[in-house]
Design a protein around this nucleic acid. Structure first.
Lengths: 208, 208
DNA sequence: CGGTTAAACAAACATTTGTTAGGTTAATAG
DNA sequence: CTATTAACCTAACAAATGTTTGTTTAACCG
């Protein structure tokens, strides 16, 4: 019988982790199969037993990363009902993902689909899947009628994606604080002098 | 006397333009010297008459791009006195630069300094030079005391940089409209607590 | 135990890559 | 007109890269 055999000493996970870390920190083209092999304790040719090509390896990382972040997002936003609070939680979760949890998420942020011609469409799809989570959150926001939700979404998406270039987990701010700050910029009028009227918000969940 | 000799048939500019376009659209590592040579009507080896290495060629593009955007920014923000209006103009200018003017600006956005080891520090410096323009604008904003200006700056910077991935010059929105929308998100409260969710879903306005 | 085969190794191959060395042409100065 | 040399060409090199092929090891099942 043909069962899904998988021996105990299978190093596929280790391989995927190594690839994710290298792709996240060095980019796709800057990372060689030899780099990945070395980090995962294998030889370059051995990788091809698990994945038929370098691009397929990236695709696997991408898929895993999207699955991780989507699940984390859904878990996080389930902890609140208020739309603005949910958005703040989503942003916090995103920052946490790219700074502490793993390197998979950073790969999605960093490696552009065009860099992987053979799987470009699939990568774009996966990206959309993740971005659609944010879109749904924005849709539920109670905003003024004049507000263009699509523009708002793109603004938030850009701000959130950019955190990977500056957020320092050793810095003074936690991901939750950044998420709250970003949402507060949108809730309260930043530019008004009497904006401090209501400046207290409830604390949500994770702080580290 | 030793004058700066430069013959009329010098194709240095053409070379730099070709490199900028390719770096902007394909990235640094994805672009080969042969690509650049082909686009600029030269042979690969000929490039080395103008620049000693591929990384130096990128540096030249970077420097030109920063000079362009800084000058464009200073020209733009000089047209208004109100800090918020100036910020809106800066955002518009940025979007215009990366979508219409040239490819130089997109290179700065896209190519990370770490990808160019020999000139990493210099590229980081050049990036800072451009980002400091935005910083100065944020500093001048009349914001509530509770607002973290640094976070605000990073949020705006992320949103603006991200426009290159979605802004469509053939779409319904102009760069100026996007700039105004972004600043208005911050001036006027996007969402108020007494507004009801999903009550007012605006349909008409879409980007790209 | 013994056969099967998952999983990895060892060693190369074919290309692509950035780069270089030496020769050629033509624009310019005197 | 002539000498100079900016600007480019031609042809190749050495290293790095993704990948392939044949071989070996050892985990699992009956």
């Amino acid at each position: 019988m043909k069962s899904a055999l998988r021996r105990s000493n299978n190093r596929n996970d280790m391989l995927l982790d190594a690839a994710a870390e290298l792709f996240a920190t060095q980019g796709f083209r800057n990372t060689t199969m030899r780099d990945i092999a070395k980090k995962s304790g294998m030889l370059p040719g051995s990788i091809y037993y698990h994945y038929p090509s370098k691009e397929d390896l990236l695709l696997a990382v991408y898929e895993s990363g999207v699955a991780q972040i989507v699940e984390a997002l859904e878990t996080a936003i389930a902890q609140a009902e208020d739309p603005w609070e949910r958005l703040g939680l989503a942003i916090s979760t995103h920052i946490e993902a790219i700074t502490r949890d793993s390197h998979y998420m950073r790969v999605i942020n960093r490696v552009l689909p065009e860099q992987v011609p053979n799987h470009r469409d699939m990568l774009t799809d996966l990206r959309g899947k993740y971005e659609r989570c944010l879109q749904a959150l924005i849709e539920d926001l109670p905003v003024a009628p004049s507000v263009d939700r699509k523009l708002l979404r793109l603004m938030v998406l850009g701000a959130v994606n950019h955190t990977q270039f500056w957020f320092d987990s050793a810095g003074p701010l936690t991901p939750a604080e950044v998420g709250q700050a970003f949402t507060r910029f949108l809730i309260e009028p930043v530019g008004s002098d009497q904006a401090t009227a209501r400046s207290s918000r409830k604390e949500g969940s994770n702080a580290s």
